[in-house]
Amino acid sequence: MSSINRKWIFLLVCLSLLILLPPVSQTLDESYLISSMTRVLIFAMAAISLDLIVGYGGMVSFGHAAFVGLGAYTAAILSFHINDGSPLFTMPFAYDGTNQLWAVLLVAIGVAALVATLTGMISLRTHRIHFIMITLAFAQMLYYLFISLDYYGGEDGLPMMGRNQIPLIDSGDDTSFYYFCLLVLILFIILARRLVGSHFGRVLQGCKYNEKRMQTLGFNTYRYRLTAYVIAAMGAAVAGVLLANKTEYVDPGLFSWHLSGELLVMVILGGMGSIYGAVIGAIVYLLLEQIFSAYTEHWMILLGPVLILVVIYARHGIYGYLQKLNQNA
């Protein structure tokens, strides 16, 4: 069997497992599994978007959670206003918010793109460690901004009155919502894989390997990197919208550097620069978290050292390891 076939079989098995999860967990009477796997799927989307810039563009953003937070708050705020009856803004026209998922997604993507363009224009002038730090700083800025927005709950966060409406789907039903998220994740994977294989993707990777060379070849690397940064932010915002819908609650913690760090961990753990790795990383990280926390409330004391070991010994992540197995087999 060729290694390419094995890869597809592996992916198909994973997909079938994910599809079969709801009926199986219901039979086993463990329906909390559906809810926690929905969370995993959503984080996988965020991790994919981060992998685009970290794994393919070489831009280590330590503030990616900010865009997840922006997406989540967009959903919560729009829903808050439609329930509250107060207009979100009155100029240039009155707008009361919305509860329709597609509209929420559009707004969230727009907001994320705008913020990413503005912050990216400054951040991308810097490189390496400065880039890490400035993305962190921008995320912190948003974190404090949302803490101070008392109208939207400030530090306590903002609950959502029920999920957004999705055409043809009962979004309130956890199983339907799970399948919807699975669908979006598959869409994410397809889009991301196309993107990294496209002309744009090749330029992005070139910028990662040797930006100076790319410039002397004639690429305006700044603009290409900025575009990638904005695309990644839009992806994270979509994940944020779904996350808010899943928990029906948002709080400034979504912008925290802790979450940004966790997203990076997922990407690295799974194996960066492969898209599939980001998905695997999200699954494994969140599962580890659950398993450890089942044993002890102090699960982070285990997770911390595991991370360190992964960084020191498993440099290409889980997907890299699987690929190696596949090639050797």
Partner: peptide, 13 residues
């Protein structure tokens, strides 16, 4: 990137 992650693990610890 590796340093960021490993020391992130240290913080958790």
């Amino acid at each position: 990137l590796d340093q960021v992650l490993a020391t992130f693990g240290l913080i958790l610890f």
